[in-house]
């Protein structure tokens, strides 16, 4: 369960580069709910996920994950509750280390790491099974550096790593955007499988309308650092890609209206 209460974030405040990336976001996500986040470039989707994950502290508001107020927790502490997959396949894995070693790290997400042997048998046997389940032929390459794998393979593994210990919240930020269509499809299928099987509370950012309508049980649409639309229940079920595109066009039209109004004002008064 995730509870976000009027959080705000301004980057580079007081400078010419000031960006008000989050301007009062309220959001409550029930346990086990799978939420798709849509929005145009720069609307604040990644900033929202980063705020929840703790990549930075918010300027105002409160964030609660699984009932705990994590607003002031550093990122590594929140990781006990949160699993993440990034857009960039290079971000989620340590490239020069082996597949097995990467998983050894993931099996201790948010737990104390001692002087125990990292690649214990207790890890290797279940690991081989779960990776065989991917049907990518990686179960015989556990000693290979993970950097030698393709982007799709790496994202699939990162997803498995993020969900190895069941997270209270799973954050996916365009985790298939950097992949070719076929790998993207594979990773999406895996995503759906993992989330459904473990009933994971999930926030997933995407730009793909087909993904948005076919996955999840709720859609939020962001614009200008705020949540503009929140579609759930039967409304979400009935949604077609065209409906979403319509809403995007409405946002664009309004923006253009704003711009032409500003233009007019500028011409008349300056």
């Amino acid at each position: 369960m995730l509870e976000i209460q009027s959080i705000r974030k301004t980057f580079n405040p007081g400078t010419v580069n000031e960006v008000r990336a989050l301007q009062g976001v309220d959001l409550v996500i029930e346990e086990g709910s799978f939420v798709i986040v849509l929005g145009m470039n720069g609307s604040g989707k990644s900033t929202l996920l980063n705020a929840v994950a703790g990549s930075f502290f918010v300027d105002a508001g409160q964030i609660r994950v699984a009932g705990k107020n994590v607003t002031k927790w550093p990122e590594h502490r929140r990781a006990k509750l949160i699993g993440r997959v990034f857009q960039n396949p290079f971000s989620g894995t340590a490239p020069s280390m082996s597949i097995a070693e990467n998983f050894a790290l993931a099996t201790h997400r948010g737990r104390p790491r001692g002087l125990g042997w990292a690649l214990s048998r207790g890890l290797m046997d279940p690991l081989r099974d779960r990776i065989a389940g991917l049907k990518m032929g990686l179960e015989n390459r556990l000693d290979n550096a993970i950097g030698s794998l393709s982007g799709g393979q790496r994202q699939a593994l990162t997803l498995l790593m993020a969900s190895w210990l069941k997270p209270d919240l799973l954050l996916l930020d365009e985790h298939t955007a950097a992949l070719d269509p076929k790998s993207a499809e594979q990773v999406i299928a895996l995503t759906n499988e993992v989330i459904t099987r473990d009933k994971l509370t999930t926030l997933m950012v995407t730009h793909s309308m087909p993904q948005a309508v076919s996955l999840g049980d709720r859609i939020i649409m962001m614009h200008g650092g705020k949540i503009l639309h929140d579609l759930q229940g039967p409304e979400k079920k009935r949604l077609r890609p065209e409906d979403l595109i319509e809403r995007f066009n409405a946002i664009r039209a309004r923006e253009q209206l704003d711009e032409s109004a500003a233009d007019m004002l500028r011409k008349n008064y300056i």
Binding site: E75, A79, F86, A162
Partner: peptide
Amino acid sequence: DNSQMVRALG
């Protein structure tokens, strides 16, 4: 190797 990942893994 990848400090971002290590942070994300707690």
